[in-house]
Structures are given as structure tokens and as C-alpha cells.
Design a protein around this nucleic acid. Structure first.
Lengths: 318, 318
DNA sequence: TCAAAAGTGTTATCCTTACACCCATGT
DNA sequence: ACATGGGTGTAAGGATAACACTTTTGA
């Protein structure tokens, strides 16, 4: 913006090489809570440069995660690629881009796994856990400050109100758990997260809440959570987070942990049953307390069919 | 696999710089057909390296597309990032990655626009257009060859059959228009598209059909089409492809062009109406033949609300 | 016996699908 | 008048959301 545009055609020999970083959001459900693999006391996502030795982007990512956390990765999918905006380019002839991935793993403690690396999502996003109703931090801290911000400047006042209303479910709008990124970005713009204040001099109001991360890692985490919350609704990805056998309530609790809200027990079961995602093992467990629960496993056949589901358009009959 | 893993930690000073290419799938609906912006007689997607002069990835992409096609870009979204696998690295110390984007534009002929750059999707994927029923090429050419391929080798026979059945809607399965990429990849594996035969020596069966493109551009195009066919169902992206005012049937035809299949007129209208996506302008047009049609425009307010829609999970009432 | 969790039945409502028909204009 | 596209009514079936209730265990 302020730096004056460089004419691309000026020097055809200018260096075009770029540093590429790989960053991972690795999620699991442990003890009924959604968790993410983080290093350096929870301040950073596993990451590292894409190097010549890496056979592919994914292979590079796996190497870094395993090296930094001791945890091998199973399912991974790409999240987003961006040119770093919070990071200052090393030199004028050097830029960096980041390629982020979402990984899903089971709650299996491997030998070299360091349990301390698993942090709850909601340490970073305390306003996102609505399983026990809207968290107190919302009415007590975030919403008042956010409202103050929307009234701060005369310019795009209406637009800000509107965005906040949609993102946080104000004015009788429903809470939409998928809008994790939009909420984080609003809080960032409003200066309510620590990351937003880093460039500026002090004096601003202290951040609203939630543990901060280095650079833009928390934004990337928000992207990963949003993706998972969306995807869980139309692809059977919970698979990747569950042990081989489980009870229906355990499955429900996992979904609730991810979505950050409770679901209706019976309707949830009907949904699962109707999609034929699972089958009974024939066994039961009484480890859950109360009446013993039937154990289920995912139907292996479904994996392939359902991974390519499809949504609705009022098509004509073939 | 066969190459023996390189230890990443061996030489910390090895070069980590990488070439980054930006590639665009730019779509429009022109004369009732879905089209893509392609250069070099339709053999390549617009693309170019990410350079220092580019303020951002998106800005770089816009520059290249405008420079190569004369067409300014409106809406764009990221598709996928990958390390090139079909391209051979320039040197041992040099690798390349590609970042692909999907762009949507209206049918507006700008002065410097070269109409010849707009190619129909279905030139590249003739098996994807089911608006007049399954295209003849499927039963006549593709399916027989594909079947031959599934029986070719004893190994993963069942799995191949299954994949083909899902992708092409065999054995009473419905046709799923979203599986564009899966279908292309199957045809690639089966050696039924030209691109698959490039590395190998001749003697193979000639490609099934569809215009080929350089490198992996056709695969990227398939990815873009798949994304658009999916997205059109849950986000109001058709907006970006329509003129400011239009009739409902024109809107329907546009959706049909993209989806490659017909939709039920009345149910389509109910869907549009129910989502309150459009409003009457009060005008009518008789340019469509037959009874004059009411003209509509998209409701500007909806743009914001609907861009963040949301899907279903059996939630509990707040 | 009672708490805790498992598991079932039922209803009103809404959305989806499908079918069939009428309306307004130009030729 | 008739072809062409525009535009509507309605009914069956299925999925959703919201009820409340019974069952089986461990402590």
C-alpha cells in the first residue's frame, strides 16, 4: 500500500525463488475435548520449510510434524496457501509463502508422543465452546468490547454491526459454529486478540482472551477448526478421530466436542443409522457407567462411497 | 519409494528456495455454455510465476491473467497447491510448486478481450455434459475401454471396478456431476486421456477423447469445475456469472450449464424463491420468445448473509 | 433403591420430488 | 391457431425437530 508498486516487467532477471513453509493443524479428540498439536509451550503449530529432500509437500509436512512432536500423521488435507503478511520478508529479494494442512489422528499415545503437546482448541478460542451454553466470556467481555468497536468510527458502522451480528449470532440470529475464522478476524480487527496489537505501540485495551500464538498460527488454527466443523457435516471424517470401536454416545460426544455445541441424541442416532455409517460389533461395554452400551465400528465399505457424497440440486429424474 | 529417503537434517545449508507458479481457471457462462479462459489455442490455462513485484498471490494471478488474456478478474478463490509432479525440476537444486485459483466472471466483452480465448468446458471433458442425457461417447467409447482396463490386471480388480462404478454411475448408481476430478483421474490411470501417454513410449491405445492441455492443466481445470459444481449448491456463486438482470429461466440455464444436467423447473424456482436470493425488477423482457418473462436481480443484502450459510447437524434448541 | 447412561416411540412440520396444468406473446 | 417459453397448484413421501418415556446396569 504505502510502499509504491514495483513494476514487474522492469527486471526480468529478478529472483523469483520463494521460501515455502509447511504448517500443520493436527487435531484429535482426547478425553472428550478437541485438541491440537502445538509446540513451544503451545505457542506454535508444527511447521518447517519445504526442502529438496522432501518427496512431496505432504511428505515434508509429515517429516516436520513427526520430528517436532514425535507424532506420526494419518489423514491430512490441504487447508490454504498464502503469502505471509504478518511476517516481514527477510530481504528485498526474498519472500515466503505458507502452505497449511489439516491432519486428523486418533487418541493413541505413541512412545515418543509428548502428551503436553496436545492443547485444547478452546484454550485458544474460549468463545467457541458452546457445549454448556454460550460461554461467560462472550456477554462479559467480548460482546461489549465488540459493540464499542462497531461504534468507534463513523465510517463503515452499519457494515461492522452487520458482520458482528452474523458472526456472533446477535439480534436473534442463531449461533453458527462454522464461522470460526470470521469471528477471529473480527476480534483481530477490533484489536481484541493479542496478535493484532503486536505491530502497534502499547496503550490499547488488553486482549479479550484466548491464548495467543506466534505469527499467524492462530489464524491458521481457526481455519482448520472451521474446515473440520464444516466437513464433519457432509463427509465421514469423524472416523479418523475415533478408536476402532466405540459407543454411539462416544461418537456423539466427539462430534459435540468438535462442533462446540450439543446435538440431539436421538436425532443424531437416526442420522447415523440412516446413513449406514456404522455397524454393531455384537459386543457391549459397561465401562461407560449405567447400562452397558453396544459397541459399533465404522462400516468399511461406506468409507469409499461416502467420501464422495454429494448435495442437493433439484435434478430431473434420469 | 524406490529412491531411498533423503535425510532432511543432513545438510542444513541446502537451498530451500522454490519456484512458485500461479494458475487460473477462469469460468464464465456464454451463450448458455460454461466456458473457460484458455491461451495458446486452448492448450493452456493462464499462468505465470509469482514474482517480487506482486503485492500478493491474488494480485500476481490477476496480473498474469490480464496480461495474457486481456480479461480483468472479479471473484477469485484458491483451488489447490501442489508440487508439480508432471514437470521435471529444472535442476537438482530447484523445485516448483503451483498454486491454482478459480475465477468467475460475467459475459462481458471488454475491448481487449479476445473472444477466441473462451473455450467450452465440454471440449475438454465431453463426457461431462449430461444436459441431453448421457453423451454418446460414454457408452460408445469410454465405458467399454474403462471396463477393459478394470479387467486388465488381476491385482486391484475389485477396487477398480468399484471406483469406476462410483465415478461413472454404473450398476444403478446415480450420475454424480461433482466427481469431475475422480473421473478424469480414472481415465488418466486407464490411459484414456492423451496426457497419460506422454511419458510412455507409443503403442498404447489412442486417447478416448477430449482436448488435451499442456502439463497438468487439464487436471487443474477438472478441479475447478468440480469445485464450482459443488459450490453452486450451497453458496450463491452463480451471482458472479450472471448479468445484472436476468430471467429465472436464464438463471436456470446457467446452473444447468455448469452442473451439466437439467434441473426441475418448478422446484428450482421454489428453491431460489425460498432462499430469497432474487427480487423482481418490475420489468419484463420479450426477447426470450414466447410469453414475456419477468426480470430479476440478486438481492444485494443476501450476498453477505448467504455467503456464510451453514449446513445441518441435529442441534439442540438454544 | 437410585443415579447414570442406554435405548425406543411418536408427532407435527418442513422440504423434496413429481405430476399436470394454465397464461401471454409473436408468427 | 399454435408454437414457445413463462408461470402456478397440489399432493405424496421423506427427512427434521421436538416431545417424553422405558430399560439396564453399578454402587
Amino acid at each position: 500500500m504505502s510502499q509504491g508498486k514495483t513494476d514487474v516487467t522492469e527486471d526480468p532477471h529478478q529472483r523469483r525463488e520463494v521460501k515455502v513453509d509447511l504448517i500443520a493443524v493436527v487435531a484429535a479428540v482426547i478425553d472428550g475435548n478437541p485438541r491440537v498439536l502445538a509446540i513451544r509451550q503451545g505457542s506454535a503449530l508444527p511447521s518447517g520449510p519445504f526442502e529438496l529432500g522432501h518427496r512431496s509437500l505432504q511428505a515434508g509436512l509429515r517429516d516436520w510434524v513427526e520430528q517436532q512432536t514425535g507424532h506420526p500423521l494419518g489423514y491430512i488435507e490441504q487447508l490454504y496457501t498464502f503469502a505471509d503478511r504478518d511476517r516481514i520478508a527477510d530481504e528485498l529479494t526474498q519472500r515466503a509463502i505458507s502452505i497449511s494442512y489439516l491432519g486428523l489422528t486418533r487418541d493413541e499415545r505413541t512412545e515418543n508422543d509428548r502428551p503436553r503437546d496436545w492443547r485444547s482448541w478452546y484454550d485458544y478460542f474460549p468463545w467457541e465452546d458452546h457445549r454448556e451454553g454460550p460461554p461467560a466470556i462472550l456477554p462479559e467481555v467480548i460482546l461489549p468490547r465488540l459493540e464499542a468497536w462497531t461504534e468507534e468510527r463513523g465510517q463503515s458502522l452499519e457494515e461492522r454491526r452487520h458482520r458482528a451480528a452474523i458472526a456472533f449470532g446477535l439480534d436473534d440470529r442463531p449461533w453458527n459454529e462454522e464461522l470460526v475464522l470470521q469471528r477471529y478476524e473480527l476480534l483481530y480487527e477490533a484489536g481484541l486478540v493479542e496478535e493484532a496489537l503486536r505491530g502497534r505501540e502499547g496503550g490499547d485495551a488488553p486482549p479479550a482472551s484466548g491464548r495467543a500464538m506466534i505469527a499467524d498460527h492462530r489464524r491458521i488454527l481457526a481455519t482448520g477448526i472451521a474446515r473440520l466443523r464444516t466437513k464433519i457435516k457432509y463427509r465421514p471424517v469423524v472416523f479418523e478421530l475415533m478408536p476402532p470401536v466405540f459407543t454411539l454416545l462416544q461418537l456423539q460426544r466427539a462430534v459435540e466436542a468438535l462442533a462446540g455445541r450439543l446435538v440431539h441424541k436421538q436425532n443424531f442416532r437416526r442420522l447415523i443409522e440412516q446413513q449406514e455409517l456404522v455397524e454393531e460389533t455384537g459386543e457391549t461395554t459397561s465401562e461407560t457407567g449405567g447400562r452397558p452400551a453396544k459397541l459399533f465400528r465404522f462400516r468399511p465399505g461406506v468409507l469409499m462411497e461416502r467420501t464422495v457424497a454429494g448435495t442437493k440440486l433439484p435434478v430431473m429424474r434420469a
